[in-house]
Design a protein around this nucleic acid. Structure first.
Lengths: 339, 339
DNA sequence: TTGAAAGCGCTAACAT
DNA sequence: ATGTTAGCGCTTTCAA
């Protein structure tokens, strides 16, 4: 069943059918109806490859997500898929490990799949203009922005929270609750990524609160794996370090931390408070529920897709959207009464 | 940069380039090397659309996942993506709500994307041969099989656990621990899907253990949403129903249940034991950790992709693989000492 | 408003 | 072992 068959069936030319298919203006209503009916009657579905070939682009937008075991990104991907679909595009998803280069992956995908644009999830903050020349389609960074790189602001779009400030907020929340010895659980303080930024925010907030940074209270796991986080926090406890609160840079790390604390006989929040940043649905059901700064995942996804489609359709230009988190108070933080 | 450019660059014909691109035998090693070098030097990437057009198929396999907020499926998708990619195919992912029809979605996707095959995740168990005629490519059902339908066994492949038996195993585990009043938390007892089967297994096991089924102990949530599960279990408790253990048909429902129990002042596992089926990584870090029957997610994904690619490449035929779960004993089940 | 025809980049006969 | 060539299904000038 091809455009030819429909044309023959209706006694018109293929161009006319093509015009109807593509909503071109110059078709008489009568012919348009005729063709549309034929299309429905024959269950005709256009061949996307042929379309892509001739117009030298597809209807595909790429989503490159870095960080395999990150439930927060999974939730983003769900909304992304729905939004992309609802706007008439197709999502080509590639999930890569944290060690992989998302730009290279995207560049390959762009050529292979004739992508119209790409949305990056959980990438590095240090792209260079040079390296981004591999990509010839517009892209938007979702969950991060180019703080450590040299990209001109009008060369890309981004949707993110202010990781540094939000981490600071979390620290201040703990301080407001009377905590002074605050540990931090992160993947890597120099990953040019979210971890580094939230760690900076942590240190900065400590300084602003006139608290000294103690390297002994920083647990570095290397990645976002829960077992590494668990082990790290166990080691922290075993080291005899003194702390009454812990900031985890992600919900899943926080959940692992709470288990480590509990297994070592420390009660959360009585003996140690825990706060995180992300806002997974699941962490609202753990015992105790996690106090966390929720990223507006659905809004971020929606906004990213809107930006990208505007860019693709030429109706918008590069923008940078900073979102706010919402504090979800759970049961994992307690006020430190006695000092 | 097309195949023509490479051909001209090397002073050979396009067919020769095409041959080395497709690993055809009849090319002299010298020419092959020459072409390969040119390809690398020019950063040439074949146009997938053109390939798909001429060979009337793409390199895409579809993954249709039903059930949006199911973390277990998310973990499957990750492995699926990796496996599909590593075998030289591309994953086209579509996630649809539980209410949607996965077969219709797949049929549309097949035509649009020229799929070579599709992997269904979390679908219904009651496909009819009639309805499956919409699909003209091989498919494998992952996490379920066609128990309630009329598909001939050699018309499709499946990779699943024996949901009924596994639910029975869970019940017997509780019974072995002294429990007699066992509640069940499920989405829908007549969804022609995993919920129904596990519920059947629950009832069957009760019968085998000479325990009576009490409808008052069945909490039906309607879907896999955690808030509905939470509310349902709260209502169960408030109803004054007497039970010492609960079987949740998924880990995420179990986690919501544990919170409901805890919030109502019941200790897990002292006052109520909880067991589930799935085996999320996260549920191994909750407090208490969840006792659950782990599905071998990675193996299931790998096996599904292997089956499908064999089907696509004509080197295998339809098979049905039944996997075993592994009991992961957590802290959510206690032995009931006093009866 | 409509149709004819020229490709888009590639593969696979068929020739050589 | 290599080249020639006819399409795959569609969009898009260009003419009518």
């Amino acid at each position: 069943m091809t455009i030819k068959d429909i044309a023959a069936y209706c006694g018109v030319s293929t161009s006319t059918v093509s015009r109807v298919l593509n909503d071109h203006p110059d078709v008489s209503p009568a012919v348009r109806d005729l063709v549309n009916q034929a299309i429905r009657a024959c269950h005709y579905v256009p061949n996307n490859s042929a379309r892509a070939l001739v117009s030298s682009h597809s209807t595909a937008v790429g989503v490159v997500s870095r960080g395999l075991d990150n439930p927060f990104l999974s939730s983003l991907i769900r909304v992304l898929g729905r939004e992309i679909h609802s706007r008439g595009y197709t999502m080509v998803l590639q999930q890569i490990p944290t060690q992989a280069d998302e730009v290279k992956a995207a560049a390959l995908l762009e050529r292979e799949k004739k992508l119209l644009g790409v949305i990056f999830l959980g990438g590095r903050f240090n792209y260079t203009a040079e390296e981004l020349r591999q990509l010839t389609v517009p892209f938007v960074c979702c969950t991060y922005t180019n703080i450590f790189g040299d990209l001109p602001r009008d060369a890309y779009s981004s949707v993110s929270i202010h990781d540094q400030n939000e981490a600071g907020k979390a620290v201040r929340y703990l301080v407001d609750h009377g905590h002074r010895r605050i540990a931090v659980l992160l993947d890597d303080p120099a990953d040019n990524s979210i971890g580094q930024l939230r760690f900076q925010g942590y240190r900065q907030a400590l300084a602003q609160c006139a608290l000294e940074y103690d390297p002994a209270l920083a647990v570095v796991t290397g990645d976002y794996a829960m077992n590494a986080a668990y082990d790290g926090v166990c080691r922290l406890i075993d080291s005899g370090a003194v702390f009454t609160a812990l900031l985890a840079i992600s919900d899943s790390l926080a959940i692992a931390a709470i288990k480590a604390l509990t297994d070592r006989g420390l009660r959360v929040p009585e003996d140690c408070s825990v706060i995180a940043i992300d806002g997974l649905e699941l962490s609202g059901y753990t015992v105790p529920t996690l106090t966390t700064l929720c990223q507006p995942a659905a809004d971020m996804a929606r906004e990213s897709v809107m930006m990208l489609t505007e860019l693709i359709e030429g109706t918008g230009s590069h923008r940078h959207r900073l979102m706010d988190t919402t504090l979800r108070e759970g049961g994992s933080v307690a006020r430190l009464e006695s000092v």
